[in-house]
């Protein structure tokens, strides 16, 4: 059997950039040569309902959904969505949430999704160059600067947070 895929669930509310964050993550994994599958639930998302997206990558991935209790990472953009999604997290799964970012350090508060990807990036083996390229491919040019900043803030932050736990 080939090695198990890495399972990431990204969750939040409609309009918070859940799908965008998962697009970027899937892009990084794909451009690094992995098999990637991604699945999302967004019924009537524009009105602030719950949204979540599953991203799985590895040598070979079958189901596009992360099985219950098998998420390696749960990245939640809206604090009140942690509880709703907690069941997907595996035993050693890692929760990444907005309290790990100092929001006032972001030039654009909307880029919190990307800042949290920065936190996640510390745990994954993809290079900063691959992340930067994926961010640029998935965002319009006028948002590049703010989001690259947010990403590096998230990536730098994790070390401090990690020690705190």
């Amino acid at each position: 059997m080939s090695s198990k895929p890495t399972n990431v669930v990204i969750a939040g509310l409609g309009g918070q950039g859940v799908i965008k964050a998962s697009d970027i993550l899937a892009d990084v994994a794909f451009s690094s040569g992995l098999d990637v599958k991604k699945s999302e639930l967004h019924g009537m998302s524009q009105r602030g309902g719950s949204v979540s997206s599953d991203v799985r990558f590895g040598e070979r991935v079958f189901s596009p959904m992360v099985p219950e209790k098998e998420a390696d990472f749960l990245l939640v953009i809206a604090p009140d969505q942690v509880e709703v999604n907690a069941a997907v997290l595996g035993q050693n799964g890692i929760l990444i949430e907005p309290s790990q970012i100092d929001e006032s350090s972001l030039s654009n508060k909307k880029s919190i999704n990307v800042a949290l990807l920065g936190v996640l990036s510390r745990h994954l083996q993809f290079s900063v160059e691959a992340w930067t390229a994926a961010l640029k491919r998935n965002l319009p040019e006028r948002l590049h600067e703010a989001n690259l900043m947010a990403f590096s803030i998230g990536r730098a932050n994790e070390r401090i947070m990690g020690q705190g736990k």
Partner: peptide, 28 residues
């Protein structure tokens, strides 16, 4: 999903845990 397929193969038709409901949508 994967979990339910496993249950089918195990012929397990015991009641399933109710999924936690997310926040329902509302008019903007």
């Amino acid at each position: 999903n994967s979990g339910r397929v496993r249950r089918i193969l195990d012929s397990d038709d015991s009641p399933e845990p109710k999924p936690v409901r997310g926040r329902p949508p509302a008019l903007c």
